[in-house]
């Protein structure tokens, strides 16, 4: 048995921690943003039928907002580095 397969068979969900692939940490933001959008919109909906469109809109708003915050934080970081160098 190959080592990765043996490791997979020995893995018990929720007991053994899961190893995330390299670079996956950033992308884990998207499902979480989707969950937040779904729950937030569900607290404002009278029925589940109203949800898909409103959820998509909120999801896009969250993702775009977070991207803008990241860009602003990066710009500030670069600015501080530039000014600190003199």
């Amino acid at each position: 048995m190959t080592p990765p397969l043996a490791a997979l068979l020995a893995w018990i969900p929720f007991i053994h921690p899961l190893h995330l692939p390299e670079g996956a940490r950033l992308w884990m933001f998207l499902p979480l943003a989707a969950c937040v959008a779904v729950v937030y919109r569900a607290t404002r909906a009278r029925t589940a039928r109203e949800l898909p469109r409103a959820t998509l809109k909120t999801f896009v708003n969250i993702v775009v907002g977070m991207c803008l915050i990241a860009i602003a934080a990066y710009a500030i970081h670069e600015g501080v580095l530039r000014f600190s160098r003199g």
Binding site: F14, L18, L20, C35, V38, A42, A48
Partner: peptide, 27 residues
């Protein structure tokens, strides 16, 4: 009696919690 909304809450919240628990392990 809000079955649709109930399913939405169950799936979304259980997914977030379950993913965290699977990645971090319960210990």
């Amino acid at each position: 009696g809000h079955r649709g909304i109930a399913a939405v809450f169950f799936i979304a919240i259980s997914f977030a919690y379950g993913t965290g628990l699977a990645i971090g392990g319960v210990k």
